Structures are given as C-alpha cells and as structure tokens.
Amino acid sequence: MTITPSPAAEAVGLTGARKVYGTGAQAVTALDELTLAFPQGTFTAVMGPSGSGKSTLLQCAAGLDRLTSGAVRVGGVDLGGLNEQRRTVLRRERIGFVFQSFNLVASLTAAQNVELPLRLAGRRPAAAAVRAALAEVGLADRATHRPAELSGGQQQRVAIARALITRPDVVFADEPTGALDTAASREVLGLLRAAVDGHGQTVVMVTHDPVAASYADEVVFLRDGRIADRLGGAAQVPGRAEQIAGLMARLEQR
C-alpha cells in the first residue's frame, strides 16, 4: 500500500492541535490549539520545561498518538483521515525515528538494523545502499557488528542510518544525545545537520540541551502546550547555545 501525498512546502504541519488526556476534573491539556509548520529541508529543535508538551507534540506529529482535535499533516497527508493500518504504512514509508535509547535489534548486525525499515515495508534492500548509508555515518567497517559490539555513539549512528535509508519526509529525533558523552553527541548532531544541509532532509528534534538545539535552524519553545517563544538565525554560530540557555531559563521562571 502506497500513500501519495499532495504537494506541500511543509514536511509536517499541525493546525489547531489539541491533545487532552483524561476527562472531567482529571483532564490534562498537553497541546493547546497549537499551530506549527516544519518546512521541508530544515532542522527544528523543540524545547520546553517538563510537561510543556514536547513529547506529545512529537508523538502526535509522528502519528503515534491521535489528537483530540485539530489536524496533523505529514508530506501533505492528513493523518486524521487514516485508519491505523494506513497510519502504520505512512510511518514506515514517510517517517524516520531516532530515539535516546537507540532502539536497535540486539540480534541483528548494524547492516541488518539499517535495512530493517525496508524489509518491514516489503522492499528488498540494495546492499550498496545499505553500505552507503553506513559509510555516510562513518561505520563502513562496522557493518557486521551487533549493537553490543558498538559504543553508544556508534549505535546512535546506526540508528541515524536506519532512519535515513528510506529518505523519509521527516526524521523525528527524541533526545538523540541524551545517553551520549560530549564527543559522541557532537558526532551525532553533526550527522543530523549534514543530512539537512547535504540531502535536504527535514529533522525535528526534541531536546533539553541548549548545545544540541544550537545545531538547529530554529528553536521552538513550548510551555503549557503552546508556543512560548521561537528563535531563528544561523545554526552553530558563537554564543547561540548560551542564547538558547538564557531563553530556557527565562521560560522556566515564568
């Protein structure tokens, strides 16, 4: 089954997105009429205090959870009109994921983990494409290694290669550097940045780390399920991480 999207300048868009958990006096509003677009070929970081709606935004934008009201579009496709089977197909074909915990299959080699999305989609992976994906993340010589034989940073690079192998509309990265040391974090962020600059990939990253967010073209700050602030400008310029940290500190004091 293939979903054909309509043309769109945005990779992902949310309009009036509202997500409420629970009912009555116990109801919690995680997203509050949020309207936000992630343009194609851009790198966006999403930040905010605990409970601001960051994780809910990612889950709803990726079709892992349904909105209470409003709309989500991925590659021009309205997720609200899809049943669970078609949502699964869309996620498999049009969305890549990078998680803090890597989520590699322990029994598979690096190459087998990278080709897994293609196999799940019923496509025969081209060995050359898998090799190229691993080479692009600097792991051409680790193709036959299993996750236990790789460092944390190497495992996350395999996860990035796996997310990019299908050339998805968007890659959602959830705290991708949260389990890594400084050097490995820098490598992973550099790869995500290179995917945007070199391949026009769209990346949306949830992070609490101002240094990680400084790699993004735009930082969106959430509070109480709404956009509280935004920061554009050039990525990785001197002082950007400190500027982001300052905005986060003011947001947490409100």
Rank of each mutant, 00 (worst) to 15 (best):
37 A>S: 10
41 G>L: 05
223 R>G: 09
12 V>Q: 01
152 G>M: 01
145 H>C: 14
253 Q>W: 09
57 L>T: 02
13 G>C: 14
2 T>I: 11
152 G>C: 06
50 S>E: 14
81 G>W: 12
164 L>A: 06
56 T>P: 06
194 A>D: 15
116 L>C: 05
68 T>G: 12
184 A>L: 09
95 I>T: 01
56 T>H: 08
58 L>P: 00
114 V>N: 00
238 P>L: 08
130 V>C: 05
244 I>A: 02
253 Q>E: 15
204 V>G: 06
225 G>M: 05
138 G>W: 01
118 L>C: 05
116 L>Y: 05
230 R>P: 00
201 Q>H: 07
33 E>M: 10
26 Q>P: 06
189 L>S: 05
60 C>N: 06
82 L>G: 12
81 G>N: 12
149 E>V: 10
74 V>F: 01
103 N>M: 10
5 P>E: 15
221 F>C: 03
69 S>I: 12
212 A>C: 15
246 G>Y: 06
36 L>P: 00
176 P>S: 10
236 Q>H: 13
104 L>Y: 02
95 I>G: 00
156 Q>V: 07
151 S>N: 07
143 A>R: 10
183 A>T: 15
13 G>T: 07
135 A>T: 14
117 P>W: 03
219 V>L: 10
212 A>P: 11
161 A>D: 00
48 G>V: 03
39 P>F: 06
128 A>R: 11
10 E>H: 10
213 A>S: 12
109 T>R: 05
239 G>I: 04
176 P>V: 04
177 T>K: 03
192 L>M: 12
134 L>C: 11
177 T>I: 03
56 T>Q: 09
193 R>K: 15
96 G>P: 01
47 M>T: 10
135 A>Y: 12
188 V>P: 01
144 T>M: 14
113 N>S: 08
243 Q>G: 08
63 G>F: 01
190 G>C: 14
193 R>S: 15
187 E>C: 10
145 H>L: 12
123 R>K: 13
134 L>S: 05
133 A>F: 00
36 L>W: 04
91 R>N: 12
237 V>F: 11
249 A>G: 09
168 P>A: 09
244 I>L: 02
18 R>N: 07
171 V>H: 02
175 E>R: 05
94 R>H: 12
65 D>G: 14
140 A>K: 13
186 R>L: 14
164 L>H: 01
198 G>H: 14
119 R>C: 03
137 V>Q: 01
245 A>S: 07
137 V>G: 00
149 E>Y: 06
213 A>H: 09
120 L>Q: 13
220 V>H: 00
185 S>R: 04
253 Q>C: 14
121 A>V: 02
144 T>F: 04
40 Q>Y: 08
20 V>N: 06
